[in-house]
Simulated scan of single mutants.
Amino acid sequence: MARTPLHILRVAAVVFAAVLLAPAAQAQTTESRMSGLALSGDEPIQIESDLLKINEETSQATFTGNVKVVQGDTVLQAGEMIVNYTNDGGSVSSGTADIREIELYKKVLIRSGTQTATADAGNFNMADEILVLTGEKVVLTDAENVFIGCKLTVQMKNGQAKLDSCGRRVMIQLDPKSRPKQ
């Protein structure tokens, strides 16, 4: 399957899903359809940070400082990652609680192959399967193709993606050499 310019976001969702499986009207927007999302937990995930705090009372695990999540060729980096768990009787520290939401802060980077997404913050709602990247400049690159906005929303269930400009303009730079050969 050929990678779409927003394929990186699907890959990020796979990373987030694998963590789960493991113990504005005037704003200009650009919409795109993302084909088939396959959530997979078949590759190991490595998470590193300077500090990990687990709070059973609030059902949170907070990774702080140089957070790096690696699964296969996908890398997620952030200054802080907060994993919010459901209050269904499971334990955060034992890995028996289900993940409700993952919050990313302090310069988010997601990279897979030739594709990269950067933002100031991110949020993945596990129940609704919605990934949102926000910031002064949300930048997606795929080789020489560049997409810039301030908010990217991806509905993982149906593959719908929307890039908002937040009152400015969405910017896209496409390299004609990147088009697939017919």
Rank of each mutant, 00 (worst) to 15 (best):
K68C: 03
T58N: 10
D88M: 12
F63G: 01
D88A: 13
D73A: 15
V70G: 03
N66V: 13
F63Q: 00
G90H: 12
Q71P: 09
A78Y: 02
N87M: 10
G90Q: 08
V92S: 02
I82A: 02
A61I: 13
T62I: 09
T86M: 02
V75Y: 04
E80W: 02
N87Y: 13
A61M: 12
G89K: 11
T64M: 14
S59R: 02
I82E: 09
V83W: 04
Q77D: 11
N84M: 08
N66I: 12
S91N: 14
G65R: 04
T74S: 10
G90E: 15
G79E: 07
I82D: 03
G90M: 09
I82V: 12
V75I: 11
T64Y: 06
G89R: 12
Q60P: 15
V67R: 00
A61D: 06
M81P: 01
V69R: 00
S59L: 07
V67T: 04
E80H: 07
L76A: 03
F63R: 00
E80T: 04
F63V: 04
V70H: 09
Q77W: 08
V92H: 05
V69G: 01
G90N: 13
V70R: 08
S91F: 14
T74I: 09
T58S: 14
T64L: 10
D88G: 12
M81K: 01
G72P: 14
A61C: 11
G79C: 10
V67K: 00
I82K: 02
